[in-house]
Nucleic acid binder design. Structure first.
Length: 899
DNA sequence: TGGTACTGG
DNA sequence: GTGTCCCAGTACCAT
């Protein structure tokens, strides 16, 4: 019969290993209370990976009791060179012990002894009692305990791989020696990490040779007189005391005065009732999903505000949809949950691969057959029926995808993606499963878990597998609708959702599907000109450098400039010399620098804007169809991808030419651009209530000049110098960003002291701006979040952080987000009103693009006068602020000409 | 995949 | 005495 098993785990060494294995991501593993969890995650995985399959009879996790042990009594500097344990790890030790207990494993520590000695002692006891003993540790010195009945598992490469040390592997590793010899080797060579000396000048090789010859340190000294006179003999004689002490320090005790016996170590298995709340406290989503999939009920979190809802009935009632059971679907007349799966992220080009429709009451129906949607089918009727409310995930993606299938989505009541984002902009993950987990619902997996990622991405071939996942997604959407909408109401965000974000979804879907026409010929012409220009610059640079190199490699460029050519490096980055514009411009009038800066600008225009844009023009309609990400930014702005049409060059003429390629889709149409003038500063004037700032806008003054007059004390009867105005402009923007004197001085090239004075003067001149800055930070500290005029919320968990850096950043964010976010609110409202006005007036013009404070339209020439009026009026009356909103419009044959 | 460079508001 | 101005996306190199 097989021996009973005893598992001994070295808590401290594995906690350290787990912590440092994920040290790069330490700030990504933080629970909702700010507790770091990287070591907990790693340790938990280790326990799962070892204890679950092992199912030992007895198990123990041993911990170090404190800093001082009998070893420090023998040698003051024992482990004396260790850095202080990081606080991020220290805070995890208590929950680590709790976690061990919840896994049904005994946790034990003993004053004056290290975890090693507890393990050594219990290993011997177990061995004598007839157990097969396994030790798990991150410390290879533990292999000294190996015997026929004791195996030592040592983690390597972080904690992902484990070596299993048996007597045979010890012999292999130590060139034929046995476990008992390890302390002899350590005694001679010492240990830098535990900081004991060994004998100076004796390394691993010599130590091994000596122990092979003499068996142990004491035996070696018995024969020391027989050694030939040599440097080495001298070292051994002089180091005798150190060697014996080091040997003693290295020796793991097997007779520590432990107060536990083997009977105390019975392995009980996980305490599911209590480990679930523990995982919830740590935000261990993946563990909770695993348990939910095993059939355990995950109760609603007590740190969640969704606490009124019970997810306990999460049984999926799924049927494969066929023409035969289609009549069941027709009975879905109230509210339906609908989900359409695509095989890629870009929904302008991705293919639908399956869908599911249903609800909790009537069950769910799924199919791969997209024809069932398109035909004159009941499903199409439901999706288009304005009386049936739809619960979905990502209404914009769904609208565009259905539009491609000839289906018009109506009456979306709940969009899980959008609502999650509005509730907490940090939940900007676009995976349904992950978002459900964030909202304490675990009966659904992430796409990555089901489909894989990258090259391994694959839709399951088995119907049951795909339909299960789709059904669980639809059910998650349906079950989360009520609690999350309630939460929106509690946050006073229902208006933001119903009146702004949800209607905007449809408008963005329309803009994206419409696309903007790109004149490929125009771009191709630019491409050949830029190629030529680039090759000239390249030759010039090679001549100036004296040899060829890769100009686009910051690393090679750094060597050329600061080593080969001998210029003085002004700044370093993590990876080497900085070659940023800022640095290069400071180098003065150096010919190669001018060439490099020009090269980089041209290369950017060519690769990103000419060739990049050409790559994404659709062959079918010669248009680009961007995707606006409505649920990504922390402030409420949109972002634009594939391609990004919000950063098309404008500041430099060569880049600005790109805009000539953006043209109307019809002959005799024109481009209209309409932009808000200084919207953020107007928002600042409004929300701070500062009378001086408001007066400047109400009187229609040039705001930067007005600020210049105030901070540089320019009399009314004198003109404002251009340079002064430029500095004032930087101050105006800086204030919005929460500037420091350091930042301003760098920006406008004055001394730090001067910058400080300028900022102080600004605050004297606009006193309510200062008051507001202070009060918004105070309010963020109290509430944990800041808000825009439309109640868009941004949480600032770091606002009370101890780390200066993190806290300062949160403070600047507290000032900037309400301003940038309110400006985003305003243009979103304007977009909705403009689109409604266009439809009401029966105009053919199309709204095509949004660039934060600017809207771009294509317009039949004969509608232009009317549209220009309409847009201008609608935009400036989008909201009523304490200052007027000013809109400027421009018309042209292309986006370039609309300036 | 992360860092550095460029682009925009 | 900390590092020190907000919000974004894409291309390229080096690992």
């Amino acid at each position: 019969m097989a021996k009973p098993t005893l598992l001994l785990i070295d808590g401290n060494s594995l906690a350290f290993r787990a912590f440092y294995a994920l040290i790069n991501q330490v700030d990504r593993f933080v629970n909702h209370e700010g507790l770091h969890t990287n070591a907990l995650v790693g340790f938990n995985n280790l326990i799962d990976g070892i204890v679950d399959p092992f199912q030992p009879d007895l198990a123990l996790v041993a911990w170090d009791a404190g800093k001082t042990t009998f070893r420090t009594g023998k040698f003051d500097n024992y482990k004396g060179n260790r850095d202080k344990t990081p606080l991020e790890l220290v805070e995890q030790f208590e929950p680590l012990r709790e976690m061990v207990t919840l896994h049904g494993i005994k946790s034990y520590e003993l004053a004056d002894y290290e975890a090693d000695d507890i393990i050594g002692t219990m290993a011997r006891k177990g061995e004598q009692a007839g157990y097969a003993v396994t030790i798990v540790t991150g410390d290879r010195d533990m292999t000294q305990l190996v015997s026929n009945d004791v195996t030592v598992w040592v983690t390597k490469k972080g904690i992902s791989e484990i070596d299993h040390y048996t007597p045979a592997l010890v012999a292999e590793t130590y060139d034929g020696l046995q476990a008992k010899h390890i302390i002899e080797i350590k005694g001679l060579q010492g240990d830098t990490s535990d900081n004991y000396p060994g004998i100076a000048g004796i390394g691993p090789k010599t130590a091994l040779k000596l122990i092979k010859q003499y068996n142990s340190i004491p035996e070696m000294y018995e024969h020391i007189d027989e050694m030939k006179t040599s440097k080495q003999k001298e070292k051994l004689i002089n180091g005798k005391e150190d060697a014996l002490m080091s040997r003693d320090l290295a020796r793991i005790r097997t007779d520590a005065p432990v107060t536990i016996s083997l009977e105390d170590l019975a392995y009980k298995g996980p305490d599911y009732e209590n480990i679930i709340p523990f995982y919830q406290h740590l935000d261990f989503k993946a563990q909770l999903v695993k348990l939910a999939n095993q059939g355990y009920t995950i109760p609603t979190n007590n740190h969640s505000e969704a606490g009124t809802f019970n997810f306990s009935n999460t049984t999926l009632n799924m049927t494969k949809l066929t023409n035969a059971n289609m009549d069941h679907v027709s009975q879905l007349t109230d509210t339906v949950d609908f989900y359409l799966e695509l095989d890629g992220a870009n929904y302008h080009t991705a293919n639908p691969v399956g869908f599911v429709i249903g609800n909790q009451a009537k069950g769910y129906f799924a199919s791969r057959d997209i024809e069932l949607l398109v035909q004159d089918s009941p499903i199409k009727n439901i999706l288009e029926n304005t009386n049936v409310a739809k619960n979905v995930f990502n209404a914009k993606e769904l609208s565009v995808s259905l539009h491609r299938l000839g289906v018009t989505l109506t009456n979306v009541q709940f969009d899980l993606l959008l609502v999650s984002y509005l509730l907490d902009t940090n939940d900007n993950n676009d995976d349904l499963g992950a978002l459900a987990h964030d909202n304490d619902y675990y009966a659904v997996q992430t796409d990555e878990e089901v489909y894989g990622k990258g090259a391994k991405f694959a839709i399951p071939e088995v119907d049951a597998d795909l339909f299960e996942h789709l059904g669980r997604k639809a059910m998650a959407i349906g079950l989360l609708a009520e609690p999350l909408l309630k939460k929106l109401t509690d946050h006073a965000q229902l208006d933001l959702y119903r009146d702004i974000e949800l209607p905007l979804t449809q408008i963005l879907a329309r803009m994206e599907a419409m696309g903007i026409t790109v004149d490929a010929q125009q771009l191709l012409q630019m491409d050949s000109k830029l190629t030529e220009r680039l090759s000239e610059l390249e030759q010039t640079i090679y001549q100036q450098a004296g040899h060829e190199f890769n100009i686009q490699s910051p690393k090679q460029l750094g060597v050329v400039l600061f080593e080969d050519m001998g210029y003085t490096p002004l700044k370093k980055t993590k990876t080497g010399y900085s070659t940023s514009v800022e640095v290069l411009e400071k180098m003065g009038d150096v010919p190669i620098v001018a060439s490099i800066l020009a090269y980089r600008q041209i290369a950017k225009i060519k690769s990103t804007y000419v060739e990049g844009l050409l790559r994404v023009v659709h062959g079918s309609d010669s248009k680009v169809h961007t995707r606006y990400l409505q649920t990504l930014t922390q402030t409420g702005r949109l972002s634009s991808v594939d391609p990004n049409l919000q950063n098309i060059p404008v500041r430099i003429e060569e880049g600005r030419q790109i805009r000539k390629a953006f043209v109307p889709s019809e002959p005799d149409w024109q481009i209209l651009s309409a932009d808000y003038s200084q919207i953020e500063l107007r928002v600042l004037a409004h929300i701070t209530g500062d009378a001086n700032l408001q007066a400047a806008f109400i009187n229609g003054e040039d705001i930067h000049a007005a600020t210049a007059r105030r901070i540089f004390d320019v009399p009314d009867d004198q003109p404002v110098d251009g340079n002064i105005r430029r500095q004032a402009k930087a101050v105006n923007f800086g204030i919005v960003y929460g500037i420091s004197d350091f930042g301003l001085s760098k920006n406008i090239g004055v001394s730090r002291q001067q910058a400080k004075t300028i900022i102080e003067t600004y605050f004297e001149q606009y006193p309510d701006v200062k008051k507001w800055s202070e009060s918004i930070i105070a309010s963020a500290r109290e509430n944990g979040y800041v808000e825009t005029i439309a109640h868009r919320r941004r949480y600032l968990p770091d606002i009370n952080a101890k780390r200066f850096n993190a806290r300062s950043f949160a403070e600047r964010t507290a000032m900037n987000s309400p301003i940038q976010g309110s400006a985003a609110d305003i243009i979103k409202i304007a977009m909705i009103n403009v689109q409604a006005a266009i439809e009401k007036a029966g105009l053919k013009a199309n709204m095509l693009l949004q660039v934060h404070d600017e809207l771009i339209f294509e317009v039949p020439t004969d509608e232009m006068a009317e549209l220009e009026q309409l847009v201008s009026k609608t935009m400036d009356s989008a909201v009523q602020l304490a200052v007027p909103l000013l809109v400027s419009t421009h018309i042209g044959a292309s986006w370039y000409d609309a300036k």
